[in-house]
Design a protein around this nucleic acid. Sequence first.
DNA 1: GTACTTCAA
DNA 2: GGTTGAAGTAC
Length: 648
Amino acid sequence: MLPTSPLKKRAAQKEKSQFTPQDEFSDLNPPISYRHLLSPHPGARDPLRVIALCDSDAFYAACEQVRLGVDPSRPLVVRQWDALIAVNYPARAFGITRMSSWRDALKKCPELTVVHVATYKEGDNAPGYWDNPDTATHKVSLDYYRRESAKIIAIFKECLPDGEIEKASIDEAFIDFTRPVRAELLARYPYLGEVPADAPNGLDTILPPPPPISWEGRGILIPIAPPPEDQAGPVSGTGTHTEDEEGDDDARRTWHDVALSIAAEFMDKIRAEVRIQLGYTTSAGIARNKFLAKLTASYKKRDSQSILRNAAIPNYLIPMPFQKIRFLGGKLGKAIADKFEVSSVGDLLPISIDEMQQKFGEDSIWVYEIIRGIDRAEVKEKPTLTKSMMASKNLPRPITKSSEGPHWFRVLAAELALRLNELRATDISAWPKTIVLHARHRYDWSRSKQAAFPFTRNVTADVIAGYADRLWKDLVGSGSKQDGSLPYSVTTIALGFSGVEAGETGQQSIEGFFRPETSTTSRLDGDGNDRQRTHGKKDQRETEGSSDDIQEIEPESTASFVCPRCHKRIEVELGDDGEGESEERRAKALMEHGDFHVAEDLSKMPDDGISGRSSQGLRAVERERKRKRESSARVEGITKFLVRRRDE
DNA sequence: GTACTTCAA
DNA sequence: GGTTGAAGTAC
């Protein structure tokens, strides 16, 4: 229970009341009953919840070190143009930081290995490693790191089939250990599995005292500072106590600590697995929720893991600069710091929720809870497939002519084509719904245009670049100036796919696209409508005729769809090797037909913008301008039809 | 759906 | 600082 209203608290603080910041942490030792332990679905409020965040140390540098077979104890940095984007720990020992320039780094450490990140240039169909790529002609590729990242996640999953894993960025993931830890808890302490006959409150009986914990080899414990003299600790209430060297502490030990220690064992094994199989060292934080796990991981970095027991939360959090907290590192955090002239979590604790809400509205509740160590966010497994895919380039010299765009599209498009096709090696049905082109003017603002991207099999750099050309014209206008100069200089060009889908949703869409054809008769029955739409195309009649005649034809051995664009009926032979194969054939057929339309689109690409009219000219730069869109004359891909069908 | 912004690593 | 990716907002 919170001791008093926040407003009173603030007033009280001014008069130097007995309130200490520690009093704000009211939920450090929640009662844990048999019901908690045995309930089938642990949620965010589970007192035995255990979350870890695991990240790779100097990830890009580690990738290069492993790729090149460099001795891990040797200093190595990853260079991007003149800057460094990763510095391994041996190199940090020389005082090299990510802010150093590559030449300075080499001065500090002559034996430094400097690896420039992989790059593309126009015409390349794969990124390559060069010692001195030119930013005027090349763009960097982070593809190798993405692939290595995926391997790490795969190991996490292998090691922990029952744990939820959420990839948080290229080099870090949250792991929810709650379920595996609970299973282990019951295995190690079988007496917890049954409510004792003499338990006073049945399932709601509090668990017996936890056993001693050996933290040896399980990670670094964030210390519980002993409470000040003649003041009870916020949790134990049992008066004086001391903490031994191991950090175990009879008075404060809880079953949650046991859970943390088991999670730490698991985490350690998983990290060892990553190190052995891939050669990457990692750091992890283990705590009761996501945000604390994240903060704990940064306690001691480099091939280690740290553990934050509930009892250690206040002393860890109070001196913490709150802008280190996830989502407070940006504008919101700065606004709060400026408004209240504070910098640490402890400074923020006395500020009442009302006071905060006046300025920061909805966000306040989240902030109020987070600085008290409360975070109910779930570890949610994200689909393996990323929803978007973007390739971007900061231009060394801003471009001022419209004609300078296409060169960069071809570079960006080559990368996108490679990445999409690589994705399709495993997810054949992966398809991006839209293609987006961004152009940024200086560091002030940017504009973007998007269009439907067709469901097509052969996604080549040319196809992508072709669509980008049209978006470019829509974005910067065409013919607005005689000499082809742009209405504004462009410092960044980014080309990407969004709405990338595959697997289940992709297959569902494809299913919906085809009409079920369990027998030849049922197909003929339902044909009236289709005939109207197909305008009696010849090939349609032919396929129908033949299937009508050949009665031996296996049910479901063929399927067909009518293209909404050309109204042709397309017949597909399905495989008989099970669902996987016929699914693949359906997808292929759709894409092959899409290819035809892509070719058609590209061959009669207008000089105009996509909407068929010249787009906003100079005036477009003004952000106030109203945009009127013509929705009718957009590129109609099969994709669009698929999307609509799925909703029906 | 489209264009734009914010946050993070 | 450059290159990504996701999510939220306004329309």
